[in-house]
């Protein structure tokens, strides 16, 4: 069994602060972490390896610091780690990123055929969830997004059955292998790294693949800024809308406040039967919501 996991190093958004003067993000001192859902993808791949034997390859695209993310995956049980790094990749949006990851998976697959690819559902910083569908589409492999559970997997018969989160419930889907699976937090509980794995990870030197290693020509229009159809034209901190004419209700006497509120609510047209019995019969004093 050969599982490939693509991961992303992201800033820990809970630590990100906005400079109120300039409306820009204060990045300094913000720790980088492995995107949380990607950790679940690594965990699931390692569990498959433990069950079926084989190996786990982890891939990322990014600057040299992203080696730390790969090392963390190694500490959790990944065997091979590949960093796609090249100045030409800079400024990539999701389409250009999926092109590079696709090239990497193609090479990995040529050298040792891949049975399954796992990724996090979406990244903490951008929340787009677009790279896995991009890679799956380019590979021509089925994509199974928002997976809650791998129900059944058979590398001999080459199929997988998963539970996917969908609107209003869950869906059980059967797919051929290889397939691309995007993982939710519900899929598993990631382990802690063992001490020997941490030692191994600390010394681990990932392979670094540049354009040439990936078979990407210098003038390939699909990478970096040139291969990115989207641009960010403006960034700002959202401001709440304040309402004029707020009515203050005195809350010092709870019963009185509750009575006033109840009147406001009935004036607004309340209860489950609102659309059956309109508010026409509500006392006129309350109908406008004025107090």
């Amino acid at each position: 069994m050969h599982a490939v996991v693509s991961i992303k190093q992201v800033p820990d958004t809970s630590e990100v602060r906005i400079d109120p003067r300039t409306n820009t993000m204060i990045r300094s001192g913000v720790p980088s972490i492995v995107n949380p859902e990607d950790v679940h993808a690594v965990e699931e791949a390692v569990r498959l390896k433990e069950r079926f034997g084989g190996k786990v390859t982890v891939v990322t695209m990014g600057p040299t610091q992203a080696i730390n993310a790969l090392r963390e995956a190694v500490s959790l049980g990944a065997d091979v780690a590949i960093l796609c790094a090249d100045r030409g990749f800079a400024g990539a949006d999701t389409l250009a990123t999926s092109y590079v990851i696709w090239k990497a998976i193609q090479r990995v697959d040529r050298e040792d055929p891949v049975d399954i690819m796992l990724c996090g559902r979406q990244a903490l910083d951008g929340d787009t969830g677009q790279v896995p569908p991009g890679v799956a589409t380019r590979l021509g492999w089925p994509q199974l997004t928002s997976v809650l559970k791998i129900d059944e997997i058979d590398f001999e018969e080459r199929f997988v059955r998963v539970h996917r989160l969908v609107e209003g419930g869950r869906e059980i889907v059967r797919s051929t292998l290889p397939a691309v699976i995007t993982c939710t937090r519900e899929l598993n509980a990631p382990r802690y790294a063992t001490f020997p794995n941490m030692v191994r990870a600390a010394r681990f030197q990932p392979q670094i693949w540049d354009k040439a290693a990936l078979g990407i020509a210098d003038d390939d229009p699909n990478i970096g800024l040139r291969g990115s159809p989207t641009i960010v034209s403006k960034v700002w901190a959202p401001a709440p809308r304040q309402r004029s004419g707020t009515t203050n209700i005195d809350g010092s006497d709870p019963d009185r406040a509750a009575a006033e509120l109840a009147e406001v609510l009935s004036g607004l047209g309340l209860t489950r039967s609102t659309h059956v019995s309109p508010v026409t019969a509500v006392p006129a004093s309350a109908a406008g919501g004025e107090l």
């Binding site: 958004t13 910083d125 403006k234 901190a237």
Partner: peptide
């Protein structure tokens, strides 16, 4: 325009060439 970085920022996305 969309929330970015966990909703702390908004960014406006354009697609000029495609």
């Amino acid at each position: 325009s969309r929330p970015d970085f966990g909703g702390k920022l908004m960014s406006t996305i354009l697609c000029k060439r495609n």
